[in-house]
Design a binder for these strands. Structure first.
Lengths: 219, 219
DNA sequence: GTTATTTGTTAGATCAATCTAACTTTATAA
DNA sequence: TTATAAAGTTAGATTGATCTAACAAATAAC
């Protein structure tokens, strides 16, 4: 393993490369709130660990080994979040900060036990997939709510953003995973969508919100 | 809060001062497996935090503030151990290493929730008292088994040593907290004691073992 | 296709936590 | 009570993670 710092860099690297393939040092530095030179020097260490490929002035690419190590950290993070919600009664908006610390605990048994107690969950409280012990995740076929058409009925299955503010916004609208949404209107000029669900029959959601709601089409 | 390193120094300081009142830099250094100069420089920082009183060449004394901070770390450690045993099914010999890491998590809510789920336990799995949110602990009137007289019947209530090897030794003899022990013989020359308990009717325990078993006299 | 802007790199400093070597003070023991 | 041993201190080096300032390369803009 690496240090906690290195683990945080690797996690950021993993997420950025998932989103964009190629990663720049400056993206990494801004994600981690460190200066560019700091990220630059850390990147060289991670190259030495074999977690990424680094060449001067070229974009970074994560290696299979880096992905493997990263997925184990993400596994620990997401299992912790799930445990906090399911076994300890925390709400989905309060678990991230705790999991951010607990994920660095070095004990396979600890996380395997969580996994077992939870019944080997495939997704965390925000709908993100939990890697299994081999780093494998279950991939659902999700699309953004913003891409849905009028009249479609979908299930809210994951969030592509789990900021506290956003989660609190969803709470205030009684939006949680598993809720069935029906698209009853789409505004072309601002991309906002009106949905009905549960006992809400006309809720207007902005484009920004709809971009962060990942849904599954009903078959 | 201080860094994890500082927290570990403070914990060691607290335990040593509990045992002996005055603490020397060298005791601290050997407890933490660092060199004497390292402990020396750290001690100056802890003095700056107001956790201890430091004067050149004089023994160290922990301050009330230091005790308070230390007891909160110990609270987190012992709650974690208890949670691991009671809620997650770990055995008492495997929880220390995990708790040693989890204790540094910075989240009151996390530990308060453990406390609540456990029903506000007063003692950890090794019988050590768990400080409450104000740092208060329940003090039992315990003596070493080695100090007991022939014929006495006592309850095993705590361990003054929780090394893995010792715990495994106790497991192998089916000795656990709450067991009632009857002293059926005492050897003067080596301090060993023969006890009976549960379905063991003649178990010989060395002086060293008896010194680590803290028992409560039955009234 | 030069120039300007953004991005990346190097150099050098700082801070925390550690070490070893050299020296000083306190405690122990002859 | 002085000599020796043990404990404590200071100085100076190292490593990891960070920073700013100065410079270099790649990309974008005209």
């Amino acid at each position: 393993m690496g240090s906690q710092t290195e683990e945080n860099y690797l996690k950021a690297l993993y997420k950025l490369s998932d989103e964009e393939g190629k990663i720049s040092v400056s993206e990494l530095s801004s994600t981690l709130n460190v200066s560019i030179p700091t990220a630059n020097s850390m990147v060289k260490k991670m190259d030495a660990h074999g977690w990424l490929r680094y060449e001067k002035y070229r974009p970074l690419t994560i290696t299979p080994k880096g992905k493997q190590v990263a997925s184990m950290i993400i596994r620990k993070h997401r299992l912790t979040e799930m445990f906090l919600v399911e076994q300890m009664g925390f709400s989905w908006e309060s678990v991230h900060e705790i999991a951010e610390q607990v994920e660095h605990v070095n004990s396979e048994a600890f996380f395997d036990r969580m996994d077992e107690i939870l019944g080997f969950p495939k997704f965390d409280p925000h709908g993100s997939p939990i890697p299994d012990k081999n780093g494998k995740t279950e991939q659902l076929d999700l699309i953004k709510l913003s891409e849905c058409k009028m009249g479609e009925i979908v299930t809210l299955s994951a969030l592509s953003n789990s900021d506290k503010n956003f989660l609190e916004y969803l709470n205030s609208r009684s939006l949680s995973l598993g809720v069935q949404l029906k698209v009853i209107a789409k505004e072309a000029f601002d991309g906002s969508i009106t949905v009905s669900y549960s006992n809400h029959d006309k809720e207007v959601l902005s484009k920004k919100v709809c971009d962060s709601l990942m849904v599954e089409k009903l078959r």
